[in-house]
Amino acid sequence: MVSDAVSEAYFPHELRPREAHEPERSVDVAVTVVGQLRIARIGWGAEVAVRSDHPGAYGINVPLGGVLETTVAGRTVVSTSGLATVNPPDMPSDITRWSSGCTIVGVKIARDLVQREAVRISGDTDAQIPGQVDLSRPEAASWFRLVRSVATQPADDPLLANPLVADQLAASLTDAFLLAALPGPEAVGAPRPRIVTRVLDAMRADPARAWTAGDMAEVAGVSVRRLQEGFREYVGKTPRECLTDLRLRGVYDELAAGASDSVTDIAIRWGFTHSGRFASAFRKRYGLTPSQVMRET
Rank of each mutant, 00 (worst) to 15 (best):
V2Y: 03
P12I: 06
H13Y: 07
R16N: 05
R18G: 03
H21T: 14
E22D: 15
S26P: 00
V29M: 05
A30P: 01
T32R: 14
V34F: 00
V34S: 00
L37W: 01
A40W: 01
I42W: 03
G43Q: 07
R51L: 07
G56S: 13
N61I: 03
E69W: 00
V72G: 08
D90M: 04
M91C: 12
I95Y: 02
W98Y: 10
I104R: 01
V105D: 05
G106R: 03
R111M: 04
S122Q: 06
D126H: 10
G131I: 00
V133P: 04
P138T: 09
S142G: 11
S142V: 05
P163C: 01
A166T: 01
A166V: 02
Q168V: 03
Q168N: 08
T174Q: 05
D175W: 02
L178E: 06
R192W: 03
T197R: 13
L200V: 15
D206A: 15
A208C: 06
R209I: 02
A210P: 11
D215P: 06
A220T: 11
E229V: 07
E229K: 05
Y234R: 11
L243G: 12
L248Q: 09
S260R: 15
D261G: 08
T264N: 05
D265M: 04
W270F: 15
S275R: 14
G276S: 13
R283P: 01
Y286C: 05
P290M: 09
P290S: 11
